[in-house]
Design a protein around this nucleic acid. Sequence first.
DNA 1: CTGAAAGCGCTAACAC
DNA 2: GTGTTAGCGCTTTCAG
Lengths: 352, 352
Amino acid sequence: MATIKDVARLAGVSTATVSRVVHGLDLVSDKARIKVQKAIAELNYRPNTNARALKSRKAELIGMVTPNLSAPFFGALASGIEEAARKHNYKVMMRNSLYETETEIEAIESLREHGCQNIILHSDFSDDETLTRLAEEFSGLVIVNRFIPAIANRCVWLDNQTGGRMMAEYLLRSGHTDIAFISSTYKNRDPVDRLKGSQQVLMENGLNVPDSRVILTDPDIQGAKSATKALIDSGAKVSAIVAYNDMMAVGVMNALQEAGIQVPEEVSVMGFDDLFICLACHPHLTTMKYPVAEMGAYATSLTIELTNKPDTVPSRTHLFMPELVARESVLDLGEGIAKNKGDDSSASSIAS
Amino acid sequence: MATIKDVARLAGVSTATVSRVVHGLDLVSDKARIKVQKAIAELNYRPNTNARALKSRKAELIGMVTPNLSAPFFGALASGIEEAARKHNYKVMMRNSLYETETEIEAIESLREHGCQNIILHSDFSDDETLTRLAEEFSGLVIVNRFIPAIANRCVWLDNQTGGRMMAEYLLRSGHTDIAFISSTYKNRDPVDRLKGSQQVLMENGLNVPDSRVILTDPDIQGAKSATKALIDSGAKVSAIVAYNDMMAVGVMNALQEAGIQVPEEVSVMGFDDLFICLACHPHLTTMKYPVAEMGAYATSLTIELTNKPDTVPSRTHLFMPELVARESVLDLGEGIAKNKGDDSSASSIAS
DNA sequence: CTGAAAGCGCTAACAC
DNA sequence: GTGTTAGCGCTTTCAG
């Protein structure tokens, strides 16, 4: 590995001049610059990041801490972050927190060893206070997918409540009034907010959501599948099921189809996230688009701004909106009725 | 940030002693060790990785270069790598290569800036020579998912050909003899090897695979969908379709179902990888398990060994085997016949 | 067993 | 415009 000294020697200048050229400072004569550039090319010189970070005490490094990279949602987030980081000439270091506060904190602390101030964190379990304290230590801390009032300007999050509203409004527009919700037991806010949004809309329309129609379970395919089976067995009469996310929606569809219930003819299903898994299931899943990759890219810019020019960062929050993606898993009952004349199935019993 | 000096001062020893304690060397008196440990805890001291790497010229850093983290396959790989790396006290830095040789090389070079020798690379497009040359520069280079004879001891790969054999054998055993293959146009070896394995088995059984039954297309849902449509339109008579991977299998199922062809009753479908997407589609996809996460973990240990104790590394290759995961998308024609007595559909025409 | 000290590669005053 | 130089925090001989 060639060092700055090697370059300086070959170019016949001092290391300071080389450093200036590398940094694109313009207090260097053209002649010197050219010599240096040639030497750099010849030696295939690359500045040693460790030395640079050690000296200048900043790292051009983004630490990404997410629960688990193998979930597609986080893969998409990671991709968004990496791409944006590359554009800014930052590297990204990743750590799985495995959904545990302890591992999460350890992951963040370990990032500090690298002098990394830029951290993008997706935290489900740490409490607001912990994160607020963390923000004091890490000037570039950005929280993704969660809103904490005390550090609102570091939160890049999604309006889940409006998302919930949009889902309910869409279902209502499609003629559904008997709706069940299969949501997550996890204590982060998303499930609660989405549910709240949906319920608001229903109540505003004079509809009631009995507790028996809201089932909380593990937020994965299997959890949703079991919950749906239980719902079917209960003999509940619903024409649509809203799942907390796409994975769960898939579980719902699995259970429905195994019970011989047609989707969407008999029961409609909605998901949330718009993962490619929506196109894997049949019928294709109607869902809310969660702009993960965009939010990852945004968070990347934000953390960099936060450390480099904190004054520029608006002291407001960074809120994204979900978008409805209508596919095939929700039946328009108006249309449905028009098509199957006389078949008045505006609220088919889920129990076959 | 507390430094080693702070700790030394507080403990009343020299920085050398602190360093010894940190590294667990046992040439330190118990008294000193305890003082130092207390100081470390009190100051929440963490060694600065940059200084350490600068001085000792090694980085405890694994660079992971994959085409695109948002594909579930790479997410699983990343997870396997991260988990193993954490156990070894290594960090992992990730870079997307976006399926381009140039970006890939740049990603690797940029890792060098960190003094990173440990690189796990999933390369689809760089040629063998480039990678062999790279291996000379990076003592810890490990190639995942590809076999290059010249650097066999750095290759962690899957026996795709045997995988292909297993698929064909399974289909044969299930009574399928009219099989089509929807594979990938990508020039990496996997598609070719899998195809070769399957064709071998068929030929060994006196069956012939006409060229018209092997369709190459983009390795994604959409590509497979179009290809399948074309196959259907061609009026080909097949009872099973083997897709290059799960994503493509999903595309195949989509096309089939849209054409009103029942899976697996009329046409069976097989994928490869065993991504969770297999459980999203209906019927659940029969596939070959690709032990990605395990291979990621293995590659992690290997790269570390390669840099730390190169003599221990066996000069053999590191070959994994895929495994059949039977689910619901392949019909056993024997059983099928038994069930639907008299319905002799051992090779139903794909054209309805 | 412990400490002093050199120096990894780079940056940024400061001097010229 | 350019060079000299003092460290950044750490490891590691080498003396003691």
